[in-house]
Design a protein around this nucleic acid. Sequence first.
DNA 1: AATTTCATCAACCGCTTTCTT
DNA 2: GAAGAAAGCGGTTGATGAAAT
Length: 247
Amino acid sequence: MVRAPYFDENGLKKGAWSPDEDEKLKAYVHKHGHCNWRELPRFAGLSRCGKSCRLRWINYLCPDVKRGNYSKEEERLILQLHQEHGNKWSLMATKLPGRTDNEIKNYWHTHLKKVKASKVKKKQQNEAISMKERETEMKANLISEVPSHEILESSPFSPLSSEISTVCSNQESTQDSPPTTFKFQETSNNNNGDFWDVPFLVDNLEAQSQDPMFFHINYDFEFDQADLFYQVMKELPENYQPYLYPS
DNA sequence: AATTTCATCAACCGCTTTCTT
DNA sequence: GAAGAAAGCGGTTGATGAAAT
């Protein structure tokens, strides 16, 4: 699971450590300690750089290094420390005896990052749910306290809003009635549905067809826009078809 | 059974900090 | 205080085994 051993341009060995190298390093450090990592490999008979020796000792050969699975307590502590300090791996390592910064970092990236992400997602979902609940509650309070005719139809709190959308969706699903007209007056209880009684598309066509520039301007689209326009026109009732092919 | 994709983790690299002169 | 060396740190890489297709 590590890089294959090789020698760089300076003749220094890189990549995976062999058991023989491990033994040499362990033996040297046990006997002389590691006061100077730069010089150590030369005295220990290793073709490695000091940095590589240090890393190998700290992360793998040091007898204090604890191997094996992380306990729930260690996981909890890492999550807590990461929350408090961010990616301060060496700081975390000081709080977790036997664990190295490199190991904690790897463990974070492979396990705990996902745990944290799922916790954050769950929290966001809960917040969204409680927001929705608060909104519903507010709406219910408003409807009960304010006379309905004082609430604008366009308001999200309007008691009509849900009825309107129901009518729209019902109408769209009906084959017999084309979706070009909207009959809101059926659900409106304030008798001011004049605006909604008139099919807006027809109204626009009649008004705009008086303008000699209308068809010229509106046919002067990019291809896909013109195509869309053509599709819309084709869906008009038959008595409006002449507008599609002006003489 | 063969191939591809994913997860893991040891080791590397480059930058920063600390120590020594 | 300045400069260079050494140590420390964190991000990234890449080989490998496991799981999925």
